[in-house]
Amino acid sequence: MRRTIPLLIVMVGGIMMMIQFFIPHQISQAVFGLYTDYVPVIAGFALILGVGSLTRVHYHKVRRRAENWQYSLLVIFFLYLMPVFGIILPASLGGQAEEPSVFHFLYRWVQIPIQSSMFSLLAFYIASAAFRAFRARSAMATVLMLAAVIVMMGQVPIGDYLGKWFPALGLWILRHPNLGGKRAIQLGVGFGILATNLKIIFGVERNWLGGAGR
């Protein structure tokens, strides 16, 4: 029973949405409208579960005094501090209405720099990955390496100095051979998505409900 009902909901809902796709009639639109009205409500509840999970995991760590429990304390502290500043206490640092709020201050001068630093790690990691990956081990690897160098140099102004043909060659690689290969993979991905959806709708695939099958 615990599994049959969700499976039934998925099957009826899935088949209904499949048929709905082909019917533009107002009744079919009304069904779709109903769906779009309900989904956000369900998603809203899930966020409560997420925050609950985060609190529980870190609360356990703090209570057990597990290794590095101090970080967990900080997580819980800031998890609840930000909403307090955002919703309950939207006051500014200087107390003036025109000045940015504390929430804005924390967002602008703590959150943005931290997240930008995380993303900028990519530059370092790409350099090190390129150094190790692009080796002329075989004919194929050599082609890959040459293509990478041409595209990379074509993307920056330095490439324009080498001649107009250079960035053009890089763009040609991006627009034609690269796109051809990409389309082939994407086509396969598309069919995979379709097949997976069908398996879920018809109850062949049920692992997503939890556990490994029957």
Partner: peptide
Amino acid sequence: IAHILIVILIVVGN
């Protein structure tokens, strides 16, 4: 400049 560095690294590696 960063792209040039990466290209140099690739050349050195090879």
